[in-house]
Design a binder for these strands. Structure first.
Length: 831
RNA sequence: GCGGACGUGGCGAAAUCGGUAGACGCAGCGGACUUAAAAUCCGCUUCCCUUUGGGAGUGCGGGUUCAACCCCCGCCGUCCGUACCA
């Protein structure tokens, strides 16, 4: 045995061995039970970061463990390779986006390989490969045929910096999710996917995802935003002559209505603005309001009385004034609401400001007073009061009654309104999947025939000026119509990159040349058993992928609705932040022992935060691998913090991990064949086999790590260890520190790769202990512990406890009034 | 505002069903080895009291129970998500 383990030499050697033996190549035809482990594939920025290391290490441990426990495991890796950064690089560095992207992929792949991840690299692809996006174009056309794609002129979110359209999901606080620029509204002809067709099913499906975090399910539920209510028309009071459609989830409170409010860009408001400068001024004022959370919270409810009056549908004697109000949104519901101040907080604020009636129509306990006094609207349950034919009904029954009358009278309809909008997928960018459509003056929209796919991106493009290079390319868009042969134009928009990531997991499972995937093979792997990634994709990617899978199911391409059976969202890797004496952020490498190395000045240590370039608190994985090796880095990523929580990176932490790796090697190097273990050690080994298996299955790697530390400590103390126990220990650590495990396995003369060895078998007899340490309490306070045979009778345990000297002393002569015995755990004497 | 998660030593954290709180790691302290240091190994390490020993202790205040980090009620704090959604 070599006295030292040298990762610098051994890591690469074992990585090559796995590669040569095709150890981690998944076999579609395997008779073993199949498992699909997937981590969210990375954007090829050029360098991996610690977040990648953590993410992929977790998936790797699970994948290796599942292989060891008899599964055929699919654990693939690829690249989410289209997107804006490549175009930005093209502009800044005068390099083609493709060249930049593929160079980045090569660099990142080399880095990932150094981690020794058990990936099936034979299935690797990048979404910017023409093969991949060609198949994506075929799928797009299938969805078009299936009626799930349409084109519509609509107001879209325009990002003026990236010069492209954004989906609703990609606008955060009114700003582009990538550029951070304030989003503008523009009218454009856009391609949409009918995600709203599946709104109900996407919502219902969340109920079946019991291996997803509740948090993510809730976020999706809120995003889909189902609400049920009544949409109805208010009739005008002459001389006004237009009715107003409103939507309300509380039609039961209709007798409490005291005004109608319309959005600033409601057609009636705009018509009025043309005639009335004051109204126009007010509308202008509304538009100035900010959209950030803070601004909205403090924004005052403002209204403009149009002078119009609407008739109450159940009481012709009530006229409701029509206001233009700044809190009503045109793009939700009908852009108009009925105001019921007593039972809606916004309406109440508004009514108090403009002196409108506030009438109670739902009883708050005993309080039925029609004059509502409070400052907080009552939104709880209760029976209806002051409401004519609704009186005494509860809220739900009253809703039904109003909807029924509205429908019978023909002036309203029970309606479900969704927050979810159809997914606009057109992007005015170059580096994305070309939308496979030709526009012909005679034939209109013509799909590119399947045998002409892929529609490839042209190589000769320039990024000298902003805008879409495809649109200004001299020849690319000029083609003949596939239907009639007349000169026509290609669609120059490309698909949102979230389309690319909506089906890559299917392509990983099956990748024939002639079609996007083979249905039977794909179905044999899917759904993904365990999907691991950041919670930042809780809505965008995870909702789109769920939709896309349903869409493929809908057009008959796959028998699958939910792509990801299990989801795990891991925490971030964080690090302390440092600031210099004059307030500059400092990188960890610029700091030594509280001093800025360059200047010798004392620094300020800030909070522990997510690693980010702007705060300079990143740690590059590559030098860590150089210095400590892959196993220590992997071990640290799994240690201490529960995987769903943030992991604070520290130099001391990685050194601790390295210490563990060295200790394991030392144990192996000192191992002598043919000896025996003390029974306690063998018991510990079996306890640990069972415990670590449970912990890995539950993705509680930190607990598995703790158990392995304990076992190692016991093995070190024992001084002598059987071959079987030695092997078991190596097998247990092998998913986490595979390079050392292989090296030890080989040097101990074991045959084959440890990666191919089965998980050790637990001997249940070894889990049964002969004795139990029993806590003895007096009045609930611990006074002694006694060791008794396991399964001892309650009376005997009680007698042994009462015989304890410490207990006699603690009782101070008092007689026990009651004794509680929990078998093999404790005796509590109440005196 | 609404929704959710969380709150345990100096730090990251364990505690499977209401049953010995703090496993394991980091940092720290003491010791061994060494000319010395590093590395390594051994020991200690929740806080308080003078000890054999005792007391307090899981954000705060109550409650249920023989027994509460765990269940209930009310607060406080931190983080995340989200929004004039009618």
């Amino acid at each position: 045995m070599t006295p030292r383990f040298s990762p610098a030499e051994a890591d690469a050697r074992w990585q090559a061995a796995w590669n040569d033996a095709r150890t981690f190549v998944a076999d579609d035809a395997s008779p073993k039970p199949k498992r699909y482990v997937l981590e969210m594939f990375p954007y090829p920025s050029g360098r991996i970061h610690m977040g990648h290391v953590r993410n992929y290490t977790m998936g790797d441990v699970l994948a290796r463990f599942l292989r060891m426990t008899g599964h055929e495991v699919l654990h693939p890796m690829g690249w989410d390779a289209f997107g804006m950064p490549a175009e930005n690089a093209a502009m800044e560095k005068k390099v083609h986006p493709g060249q930049w992207t593929y160079a980045n992929i090569a660099a990142m792949k080399a880095q990932l390989k150094r981690l020794g991840l058990a990936f099936d690299w034979s299935r690797e692809f990048a979404t910017c490969d023409p093969e991949y996006y060609g198949h994506e174009q075929a799928l797009f056309l299938e969805l078009l045929k299936g009626g799930l794609v349409y084109r519509k002129e609509s107001a879209v979110n325009w990002d003026p910096v990236d010069m492209t359209v954004l989906a609703n999901e990609q606008v955060i606080d009114g700003r582009g999710w990538r550029s951070g620029a304030l989003v503008e509204k523009r009218k454009l002809s856009q391609w949409f996917l009918k995600i709203t067709d599946f709104a109900d099913d996407l919502l219902a499906g969340l109920g079946s995802l019991d291996q997803w975090p509740d948090k993510v399910r809730l976020m999706q539920e809120n995003w889909i935003g189902k609400s049920e209510g009544l949409q109805f028309a208010f009739a005008p009071v002459a001389p006004f002559d237009r009715s107003i459609e409103v939507y309300s989830t509380r039609p039961d409170t209709i007798f409490g209505a005291s005004f109608v409010a319309i959005a600033a860009d409601h057609p009636i408001a705009r018509a009025l603005a043309n005639a009335n400068p004051d109204a126009a001024g007010f509308i202008e004022l509304c538009k100035q309001g900010g959209t950030t959370a803070a601004e909205l919270e403090t924004a005052e409810k403002l209204g403009f009385d149009t002078g119009y009056r609407m008739r109450h549908p159940f009481d012709a004697s009530i006229d409701l004034p029509v206001y233009i109000a700044n809190f009503v949104l045109m793009d939700y519901g009908t852009g108009a609401v009925m105001g019921v101040p007593a039972h809606d907080q916004r309406d109440l604020d508004f009514a108090r400001k403009y002196g409108l009636p506030v009438r109670r129509v739902v009883a708050d306990g005993e309080n039925v007073d029609p004059v509502f006094e409070g400052a907080e609207a009552y939104t709880g349950p209760g029976r209806l009061v002051n409401s004519d034919f609704l009186n005494d009904l509860d809220v739900a029954a009253a809703k039904r009654a109003v909807i029924e009358r509205a429908e019978a009278g023909g002036w309203g309809k029970g309606t479900t309104v969704w927050r979810l909008r159809d997914w606009g997928v057109s992007r005015q960018r170059y580096w994305g999947t070309p939308i496979p459509i030709v526009h012909c003056d005679a034939c209109g929209v013509v799909p590119v025939p399947t045998d002409q796919l892929p529609v490839k991106l042209p190589e000769d493009v320039s990024f000298d000026i902003p805008g879409n290079p495809l649109d200004r390319h001299p020849t690319w868009k000029h083609v003949d119509c596939p239907a009639c042969g007349a000169p026509a134009r290609r669609e120059t928009d490309t698909l949102d990159t979230f389309v690319d990531s909506s089906w890559y997991f299917i392509r990983f499972a099956s990748q024939p040349d002639d079609k996007p995937f083979d249905r039977a093979v794909a179905e044999s792997w899917l759904p993904v058993g365990q999907y691991i990634g950041g919670v930042e994709h809780a809505i965008l990617h995870l909702l789109y992928a769920r939709f896309w899978t349903r869409a493929l199911n809908h057009v008959g391409l796959i028998d699958l609705k939910e792509p990801f059976a299990g989801l795990f969202t891991q925490g971030m890797v964080t690090h302390e932040t440092y600031k210099s004496a004059d307030g500059r952020w400092l990188a960890p490498s610029e700091v030594n022992d509280g001093i800025e190395t360059a200047t010798g000045d004392a620094i300020t240590i800030g909070r522990v935060e997510k690693m980010s370039k702007s705060k300079k608190n990143t740690v590059d994985p590559e030098p860590i691998l150089d210095r400590y090796g892959a196993d220590a880095a992997r071990w640290f990523m799994l240690s201490d913090s529960p995987p769903e929580r943030d992991l604070p990176w520290s130099e001391a932490g990685i050194e601790g991990a390295e210490r563990f790796v060295k200790r394991v090697w030392k144990l192996v190097a000192g191992h002598q064949a043919g000896r025996t273990s003390p029974e306690a050690l063998t018991r510990a080994v079996h306890r640990t086999i069972a415990g670590v298996a449970d912990d890995i299955t539950a993705l509680q790697f930190n607990k598995a790590v703790a158990k392995l530390y304990t076992l190692l400590g016991e093995a070190e103390k024992a001084k002598t260890m059987s071959d079987a126990d030695m092997d078991a220990l190596l097998l247990l650590v092998s998913p986490m520190i595979p390079h050392l495990a292989e090296e030890a396995w080989s040097q101990l003369g074991r045959s084959g790769l440890i990666a191919d060895a089965p998980w050790p078998v637990v001997d249940p007899a070894m889990l049964v202990e002969a004795e139990a340490t029993i806590a003895v309490q007096v009045n609930g306070k611990l006074r002694d512990t006694i060791v008794l045979p396991k399964g001892i009778a309650k009376e005997d345990a009680e007698a042994a406890a009462l015989a304890s000297e410490k207990i006699v002393r603690a009782l101070e002569g008092k007689a026990p009034r009651k004794v509680i015995v929990v078998p093999d755990r404790l005796v509590n004497i109440v005196a």
